[in-house]
Design a protein around this nucleic acid. Structure first.
Lengths: 151, 151
DNA sequence: CTTGTAATGAGAACCATTCCCATCTACACT
DNA sequence: AGTGTAGATGGGAATGGTTCTCATTACAAG
C-alpha cells in the first residue's frame, strides 16, 4: 500500500498532466492498488480493495488511466475486464489465465520463457504477416489451486 | 457449405445423443458454418451466416454444442464471445487476435511454431505450477490489414 | 474570493447474453 | 401412419457488466 515507488506516481501525474488531467486521490489509490496487486484486477476486485469507491468512479478512473497510457486492459477467460499498469511502469511480463476460476496471474519473465516467446512471435510475424504487439502473450491453463480441487 | 466431412457430423450426432439430445437442422447448420469459417465466429457473425436464425436460438444452440463438447468458446480482445469447433474435430491450431479490429484468425501449426509453443508451455508448467490446457495459446497482435490502415 | 475546468457520485441507459414459456418437432412405440 | 413424450424452437422479458448523463463538488489560477 505504500510500496509504490514515487517515480511511478510522478510518471502517472506527468502523463495525466499531458492531457490536462489531474492526479487525484482516487486515481492515486487505483494506481497504488494495481501496483501492489502484482496481477491484473477486475472491477469487483478493485472495488473490494479500494475503500469507499463507487462503481461508476472505478470504471471512469480506469478509463482515464488507460487514456493516459498508464493502465491497460487485459482480457482473460471470463467476461470481466481486468486492469494492470502498463509494462513501462510495471515491468515486462506475461499472463496466465486460469480457465477454471478466471484469475489472471503475472508470469515473471525467465530467460527460457522469453526465448520461447520471442521465437513464437518471430514465427507468427513471418508466417502470418502479423506484428505481435509489444511481445505480449496470454496463456490459458489450469492453475495449481484448481487442479487440486475434486472433480 | 457442403465442405464439411460427414464424419464430423456423425461425431457431433453421437456426442449429442450421449446427452439425449438431437442433431437438428439448426445445430447442423451451425456446425457447418463454424467448420467452413476456418476461424472463431462471434454471434453476430453467426447470425449473418445462417439464414433465418433467431438470436436466442443462436445462443442456445452454441451452448448446447459446447455442452456436447463439440464447440468451444474463444476469448478475443473485445468482449464478444467467439466460437469454434473443438480441436479434435477441427484439428490442432492456435489463435491470433487483432487488437485493432478484434478479428480472430486460426494459425495453422508449423513445426517451428509448435516447437516454440511447446517449449513455452513446458516452461510455464515447470516454473508456475500450471497445466497449460491442451496446448492452447492465444496471441494478440495487429493484423496485416489494420497495419496498412492510416493512423 | 471569483471563476473556469476537471472530477465525482448516483442512477439511467446500453448491450451482449441468459432465461422463460408457449408452441412446435423429432423420435419411439404402436 | 398415428400417437405420446421429451427435446427444440422463437419471441420477448430479465440479467448483469459497462458506459453515459448530469448535477454537484473540488481544484488551480488570477
Amino acid at each position: 500500500m505504500v510500496s509504490v515507488a514515487r517515480p511511478v506516481h510522478d510518471e502517472v501525474a506527468l502523463r495525466l498532466a499531458g492531457l490536462e488531467q489531474r492526479y487525484t486521490p482516487i486515481r492515486r489509490a487505483l494506481v497504488t492498488t494495481l501496483a501492489d496487486a502484482g496481477r491484473p484486477l477486475s472491477i469487483p476486485e478493485i472495488l473490494a480493495s479500494v475503500d469507499e469507491l463507487p462503481q461508476s468512479s472505478a470504471y471512469r478512473t480506469v478509463t482515464a488511466l488507460i487514456e493516459a497510457g498508464v493502465v491497460r486492459r487485459v482480457t482473460g477467460v471470463d467476461d470481466h475486464g481486468r486492469f494492470e499498469l502498463t509494462e513501462d511502469l510495471a515491468g515486462h511480463h506475461h499472463h496466465l489465465a486460469c480457465g477454471s476460476c478466471g484469475t489472471v496471474e503475472d508470469i515473471a519473465p525467465s530467460p527460457r520463457l522469453e526465448r520461447a516467446m520471442a521465437e513464437a512471435a518471430r514465427v507468427v510475424a513471418e508466417e502470418q504477416g502479423y506484428e505481435v504487439t509489444s511481445h505480449q502473450f496470454d496463456l490459458v491453463g489450469v492453475c495449481s489451486t484448481c487442479r487440486a480441487l475434486p472433480g
